[in-house]
Amino acid sequence: MIVAQQKPLEEIRQMVRGFRRLLVLGCGTCTTVCFAGGEKEVGLLSTSLRSVLGQEIEIEEAVVQRQCEWEFLDQVGEAVGRAEAVLSLGCGVGVQGIGERYPGVVALPGLNTAFMGLTEAPGIWGERCMACGDCLLHRTGGICPVARCAKSLLNGPCGGVQDGHCEISVDNPCAWVLIYDRLTQQGRVEQLEEIIPARDWKASHSGGPRRIVRPDLRDMVGEEV
């Protein structure tokens, strides 16, 4: 999932100041699951904003299933129409989705989108994927060094590993120690003798903003590619 965290209330207060009608819009998928932008968080944040902004602002609340799909965003057209600004509790995709669907309204980010990851334990989320566009998990024991090594090293751990953790933080297990242990457990550690040569980063963000066009699906809806 996409993991996000609410911005500090003061930053949000500064952001929404001057707007008289605000829609606080939650997202029912990723940010609900990571307790950052679901129905409950929309309610709590709206209450906080009402208490700090008082009569200055009229706040409406809503949640859509996903802010990253037009069909769900279309369901809140009326509420968006009543607002001067929408404070999105979706990820950065959601904020931009609102802006693209409703260009006349000001779309504001209520969250900081953090990373793509999973819930390691209740209340703990960890990054797992950086969407580099050319997955090599089959070569690294199913553990991603691009996302989980602080230096994205592809050929083994640097010299800064101590007691299994990364030099930058004791809370960050060394990705390469995890990879080594996993492959050892699977009896495939000899895989780590291979050199992974310099990568072609074109498929990552280095190649510019990415876009996927599927002609087969375009054909199905009868539109030209």
Binding site: W176, E193, I195
Partner: peptide
């Protein structure tokens, strides 16, 4: 190149040198 014989995982350090 550099090599660190003292960092985890110790058994992997010679492999990294070989690479």
């Amino acid at each position: 190149a550099a090599a660190n014989p003292f960092a985890d995982p110790l058994p992997y350090r010679v492999v990294r040198l070989a690479k």
